[in-house]
Design a binder for these strands. Structure first.
Ligand code: FES
Ligand code: FES
Lengths: 154, 154
DNA sequence: CGGTATTCCTATCGACTTAGTGGGAATATA
DNA sequence: TATATTCCCACTAAGTCGATAGGAATACCG
């Protein structure tokens, strides 16, 4: 019950990988004496789709599509061409897990009548409907209270 | 995302119907001067599968299977043969929604590694895994804190 | 006993979703 | 120009889900 598609699991693992790549990149800079300056926004280091796929044992072509989807929703930024790759669009602490999940799977909606109050004869008074709305709010609450940073630091 | 199969929605609506049938049945008894005495356990009145299907506009044969499944898990009791039907196995306040959901769809398990800590190389230290376990606990918490009575009274 | 209403069991089907593959076009770097 | 990368579209294989069908087992009722 409530099983999460691999699409979403892969997407999150890729984001975790990107966050780590960022941390590693900054550390390397510091070590070589060059202070970190965020030139292209808060996140500067990229990783290629193929690289992430290898590290995480995910089907390369499949992950490619997932990252493209994440990019379309503004979670990551893509750089095309040689030496291109993906990087986080903003700091991990600013990426809500709810946004990630919605980017990959659409809105949390246990049943259609969460929005469609007319799916049974009772309409708005429908009792099961309120039960499902409560579930949606509970899930949304959990997901929106965590950021990618929380996942990494867990 | 997190959409609930019709199987579960139908099952819950059927249980709500059974709870109502019980209330209506008792009221009729009271009216005719006969005091209610729970002879066969806390719940006495039955409804047939076909009857519920008609009232709730659910495919009759499909609902039949759902009710049988609910019976196998001890949520309802079946009486075969003529004048048979289904009734709640216990008082609505004693039926946790978590048990209903698990009866129809199995345990809440967003990802396999909720139990299998060895699904990626990081094992127990895996960060996404903890995130998913947190989600499972959140959902389980919501579902186990409500009973069928809460759904009806909502 | 025979008729009927009910649950119970098993098999099947079509539509949809999911995970994954493939081929290449566009784009940026060197 | 050669190369490495994202991007785009179409496709397939396998699984799940909702629903249907046919009948066997069981219980009541006359
Ligand atoms: S409004 Fe959807 S089941 Fe009642
Ligand atoms: S243990 Fe399942 S993804 Fe790491």
């Amino acid at each position: 019950m409530f099983s999460v598609p691999t699409r979403t699991q892969y997407g999150i693992r890729a984001l975790v990988h990107l966050a780590k790549a960022e941390a590693v990149g900054r550390a390397r800079l510091e070590k070589s004496g060059v202070p970190f300056a965020a030139a292209q926004g808060p996140v500067a280091f990229t990783a290629t789709s193929a690289e992430i796929a290898r590290a995480e044992s995910i089907s390369p072509k499949y992950l490619e599509g997932i990252l493209t989807q994440l990019k379309a929703k503004g979670i990551v930024v893509a750089e095309r061409g040689k030496n291109g790759g993906f990087r986080l669009a903003r700091d991990p602490g600013e990426i809500r897990m709810l946004d990630v999940v919605e980017a990959l799977e659409g809105e949390v909606r246990p049943v259609d009548c969460v929005e469609d109050s007319g799916c049974c004869a009772q309409g708005v008074a429908c009792m099961p409907r309120r039960f499902w709305i409560g579930l949606k709010e509970t899930i949304d609450g959990y997901l929106s209270s965590r950021t990618l940073r929380d996942v990494i630091d867990a």
